[in-house]
């Protein structure tokens, strides 16, 4: 399945604004982010804490909707999904 990754702010600076991942059906959010981490230590350091879980300050959206809570890592992605990753917002 194809999942589009959109990155903003310092995450964009590390992996670029848009990536396309070809993942196995049923891959969770954690799997997609680990896939991206495999190619970039900087991304891994920015995205994960020392325990290997997604750092609490990292904001994630699937198809424009925030995903939060302890189960966000295990949320399953589907073909055509857009997963966005960014730091806390700072508009205004």
């Amino acid at each position: 399945m194809i999942v589009r990754i959109k990155a903003f702010a310092r995450f964009r600076e590390i992996i670029g604004s848009e990536n396309t991942l070809d993942l196995d059906e049923g891959t969770p959010v954690l799997g997609a982010l680990k896939n991206l981490s495999a190619g970039s230590k900087d991304f891994r350091d920015a995205c994960f804490d020392r325990e290997g879980t997604i750092a609490s300050h990292v904001v994630l959206m699937i198809n424009g909707k925030r995903i939060s809570g302890r189960d966000r890592e295990s949320m399953v992605l589907h073909d055509g999904d857009e997963l966005a990753i960014f730091p806390p917002v700072a508009g205004g």
Partner: peptide, 14 residues
Amino acid sequence: IIDRLKQTVPIWKK
């Protein structure tokens, strides 16, 4: 409105 905007709207400043 400005308080909510600063909390939630995905905009960043460098």
